[in-house]
Write a protein that binds this DNA or RNA. Structure first.
Lengths: 205, 205, 205, 205
DNA sequence: CATGAATGAGCATTCATTCAT
DNA sequence: AATGAATGAATGCTCATTCAT
């Protein structure tokens, strides 16, 4: 029984917001964050500019909503998938494969979300990926930390390991930015293989 | 008898252009591509807005010049360094280490250059990394292709291998975007190690 | 048999209109005429924006209603009070004291009403105090005209005398705009004294 | 030898700024503060909207400049005139006459300046006449305070006296808002007379 | 009786660019 | 060689108003 501090959204509202988020995603993908103006977004949604601001308090809020929308869903998917795996190695592989699968099946969302994360700045110039970065990577940090502790993964600063894994996984989206219809299978197979082999604790010889 | 299609640049012209490129780099690093306006760049260069357009035909041209400036220098460095190494494995390691060293010693150039590459779009919406991508990665493609042919590297589509290597190497710049004074040593050591181990041809067991 | 050109207002209608007028007054006082938008007024009345326009044909009509509401009540009070006094001097003093007392006891109404009168313009730019000014000041004109005729007041153009008196009396509201809890007693005592002494016919010396 | 922290304004700049201030004054007088948009001001100045913001950082800055422009000049005039008078009574009379004379000879400036002062609000809703009110009325406060101390003026709170005097003097501008070609002579003669007689210390009878 | 939805006109402001000097 | 002046197009956003329900 949720306490509704603000009234439950109407059917139209839910639909419109979804439509606008979709339009924002399309716009960012087609013209880039830099040129994704309210006018462009409204044009794609086939509504007036002011209608966008009727459902979102500002253009910024809409774009941040896109980011939240995309990465919350991704994170939920990852949490569920990883929970079904046991052992750091298996969990990491599951994490990586699930991540790339998600990118594969949510191409436009992911490319737009990443472009916004990379390009957006708060009014004082701080990029988005600096705010709340800790919690965003919590799951990955846990897997990698655990694996290193158990001697399964190459020892290195957690931060570094996270950066490397994310760099490779996000590269799958970059591939799509280059060609939105690209086949992600080779990247999934080889990218994950490289990560697993690269991160595996080196064997004494 | 060289045909001078345009007159040799004067000393001041060369100096001014260098100064403006530097100002553009600083601006992009401080406020991001999105807010890097001509006015901001001119302010940092301590010249009038119109002076910028006196030396560069447009703002876009200036920013593209920054990209060229940065990546040409990086490429030259890579070519020289790799030439001194022998064998695909050693050449890849040299490539990777030189790359990260260059990022380390040219922090502002690299972070700005990458931000522009990622954010800039041509008027029709095409991102920068789609134009001339082939030649930009020529050296890396040669090293990886050679290594795979010789059975030294894990076999995969060349495109995929290039993407993975570049993703990891570029992540060093992302680290700096997060903290411009970050110590890159751990990333260099571990990043390269992960790449080498990950790309090594899997041993039959 | 009265012809009902418009049907008698229902109870809720009367109540709603009063509530909206009150909300408009509060809004003008809090944010000023310039920023008193329909949205702000509706928010304070806790109704939807469109509800405001259900009871008033336009925002302008609502604000003009506030003015009418305030100054009609003030005028009625003045008429009653002045009727009880005899002689131009006494009537003027009564007028002035009643005016300031009314301001004192209807602070928010008066300050809002005056701000609207001062700031509002018809679409063609005409200020409010140009429309129907004659009848608004009828009572004061009569008192002053009579007093001058009888040699009780300093002789001057009626218009000038009215302007002076109104300026001083309205200044009591200005005092409240500065501090809504200000004590108006000194202003009532001294303001009236100054007016009476100043307007008194000069004695031959 | 003034130290120029910013470069001396060019001839064009000085001229344009004056022209824009004039256009702003005309606009406020013609359509009121509320409707005095950048577009209207620019139209009257026969320049592009952006040209206004080339010379003034914002619309607000331009309007505040008008206020400063008007009231600084008025204050200077008052200071000079009052300095030539001796005795509180004479000084008050001089103050009042000079004030109204200034209004008379600078009709459009004064009406516009007053409308801005009355209507403008800072972003948090504070009216202009609340900021720095102390210093604006310094001269008048001094005259009235001195006169009351010497028993020449009716004793009352300084604030009240200032409010009364200013109300009457400002009413001269209100007269002009009603009719920009009105003859101010009767108001000057009678208004000043009323003030002097009204403020004079009451004689014991 | 009252509202949520939607809009078009207008707003102040930013910006890359042009041009005469 | 360099600039100040000026602009037109675009941007994010506000607002009074309309209308179907």
């Amino acid at each position: 029984m949720p306490v509704a501090s603000r009234p439950a959204p109407t059917f139209t509202e839910t639909a419109r917001r979804a439509q606008l988020i979709e339009a924002a995603i399309d716009t960012v993908n087609e013209v880039g964050y830099h040129r994704a103006s309210l006018a462009e977004i409204a044009r794609r949604a086939q509504v007036a500019k002011s209608a966008v601001l009727y459902y979102f308090p500002s253009k910024e809020a809409l774009l941040l909503h896109v980011v939240e929308h995309v990465f919350t869903a991704l994170d939920e998917r990852l949490v569920v998938a990883v929970a079904a795996a046991s052992g750091a190695v298996d969990r990491l592989r599951t994490y990586a494969e699930t991540y790339i699968d998600y990118v594969d099946t949510h191409r436009s969302e992911l490319t737009a979300g990443l472009e916004i994360v990379v390009s957006h700045r708060t009014p004082d110039g701080t990029p988005l990926y600096l705010t709340g970065a800790e919690e965003d990577t919590a799951l990955l940090r846990r897997i990698l930390g655990e694996g290193m502790e158990q001697g399964l993964f190459r020892r290195m600063p957690l931060r570094t390991a996270v950066d490397i894994v994310e760099a490779v996984l996000d590269a799958s989206a970059t591939t799509l930015q280059r060609d939105r219809h690209a086949d992600l299978a080779p990247f999934r197979d080889q990218g994950v293989a490289v990560l697993m082999a690269g991160l595996a604790a080196p064997t004494r010889s």
